[in-house]
Every structure is written in structure tokens, then in C-alpha cells.
Amino acid sequence: MRALRAGTRTLDLNRRIAVMAIVNRTPDSFYDRGATYALDAAVAAGTAAFDAGADLVDVGGVKFAPGPPVPVEEECARVIPVVEALAPHGLVSVDTFHPEVAVAAMAAGAAVINDTTGLHDPRMADVVAAGNAALVIAHSLAAPRTQHPLPHYDDVVADVLAFLRDRVALATAHGVPEDRIIVDPGHDLNKNTRQTLELTRRLGEFQELDLPLLVALSNKDFIGETLDRERGDRLPGSLAAAAWCVAHGARLVRVHNVRETVDAMRMIEAIEGWREPVYELHNTRPEGND
């Protein structure tokens, strides 16, 4: 797996699982219901995420779910101050499908642009190519903020792979280097629970793309429907799904519960032999300490 360039940083994801924390500066986010909509709350949440060990913080000003359009000016007013406040502390990503917002975000210090519409607007590839940010290309089917009821796939993995191959080719044709591209199969995005479970089960097939693989599955409905758990009670399922995905090739995980996920990912890294324990005392002294 090649190293990922994001802004002025290079992430070696061969021996590192990057945790991307979610900060939604929206009044109607699906998980926190607007808890970080206020500017000070959003900045505090991002700072706390970095303190808890997040490698990146992903800031969003418009949720993916269907709804009325949010003007570009309003989206910029929501996300740009957060980017400016957080960029000195670590890698900041901006979740947007508007090229104009991406331009402003990169100028403010964003190192990653996360397009959950998979380059629905090809101009996004142009603006990212002109900057130095990494680009997340996620799979989804619907036009931005619209419904896609009863999604059908002949083979969900084959169809998503074909989509991602096509959009990666589009991005590179527009000048985005491959070492600045991340792919996301889009858990639950225009997919029902059975389709998302199959996507997860066969995640290893996405390694053929030879690009860093991001999974955004934290607290999503496929977990709730699988376990019969409400939105606030999906952490164990989220951690299990994240661990499965990492074992099958994912190298970035986008999450709400940062501290718990960081611990889980660092534990996987230690088991793999990619990192050393912070300290060693157990059974290292002649007197024993069982």
C-alpha cells in the first residue's frame, strides 16, 4: 500500500490505522442532533478529538441525508472557522460535495476533502488537483441531498468497485495524484442493511484498487438494525465492525467515539507488531506481579 499525502504530511498506512473523528457543524446531524452546531462546541469537539488520539478531524457543514439545499455561503460560514481553528493542531478534513467549499477549506488549511457523492460534480477533482489536499472518493448513487429508495445492485461489491474504479480514473485524469486518493465503499450510503453487511463481509476485495481504504460505519443504521440497538447504543457494534474492516484492509476509520476507537485501533497495531506497548511490567520482575 502506497503512502498517503495529505497537505504537507505523509501518512504511512502500512503500519498505522488512521482514526478520523467526526465533527458535524449542522443543526440536524443524524448522530449528535446538533450538539456541535455552535462554533465553540465544534472547535472544542475537534480539539478534544485530537487530544484523544485522532489522526484527522472531519468537519461537515451539510449532512448526507436528503433535505433542502444549503447555500455554499452558509456551508462555508459553518466549516471554515472550524478548519482555521483546528488546522494548527492536526490534519483537518472537510466533508463537502461543493467545489467552492473545497477551495475555501483548502485555503483555510484543510488537508483532506471528503466527497461522499463520489465526484458527482467533476469540478471537485479539478480544485483538489490544484491544491495539495488528499481526496476521499466515496460510493453513493443519489444526487446530493436526494432520496434513492430501494437501491438495487446486481452484485453490490462488483458494482461499488466498478464505480470507484471509474471515479478514481476521473480524478487522476483531472490531475489528482494517486498518492492523494482515498476510497470509501460508502457503508449505508444508498444501501440497505443486507447490502452493507455483504459489502463489509467482502471488504477484502477492495484491496485490488491498491489505494488507502476508509470505512465510515460508526453508529450507522446497519449496526442498529443488525443488533436492534438505538443510535446511542451502537458503540460495541461499531468497534466490532471497524476491527473486522481493518483486518480486511481498511486503513482509515471515520468515527464518533474517538477515545474508544483509538484504543481499539492501537491494540490491533500492537497485535500486528506495528507498535510497541507503552510500558511493560507484567511478569517482568523476579517477584512476579500476576
Rank of each mutant, 00 (worst) to 15 (best):
V136L: 00
A129Q: 00
A130C: 04
I223L: 15
V136E: 05
T8K: 06
L217F: 03
H148T: 07
V183P: 03
R202C: 06
A110D: 02
T117S: 15
I22P: 11
I113R: 03
V79W: 02
L252G: 02
R9V: 09
A216E: 14
D12M: 09
V94T: 07
L56S: 01
V168D: 01
A87F: 07
V255H: 05
A171I: 04
V127D: 07
A41Y: 09
G204D: 15
Y279H: 11
A105W: 00
A48G: 13
G288H: 11
Y279F: 10
Q195F: 06
R201V: 01
E75P: 00
F97V: 02
R25E: 13
V160Y: 12
A169H: 11
G175H: 06
Y153H: 08
L119P: 05
A216I: 04
W244P: 10
V112S: 07
T10L: 11
W274A: 11
E287L: 10
A52C: 09
V157E: 12
V83E: 03
G118E: 13
H152V: 14
A3M: 12
A44K: 13
P81M: 11
L239Q: 01
R33D: 14
V136C: 09
M265K: 04
E230D: 15
D40L: 01
R285N: 09
A35T: 12
T8F: 03
E230N: 10
V215P: 05
A85L: 02
E287N: 03
L189C: 08
D126N: 01
R231M: 14
K191C: 09
H89D: 07
A243S: 15
W244H: 15
A138F: 02
A44M: 03
D28E: 15
V62E: 15
L189T: 06
A107N: 13
V176H: 01
R16T: 13
T10I: 14
A38T: 09
D290M: 08
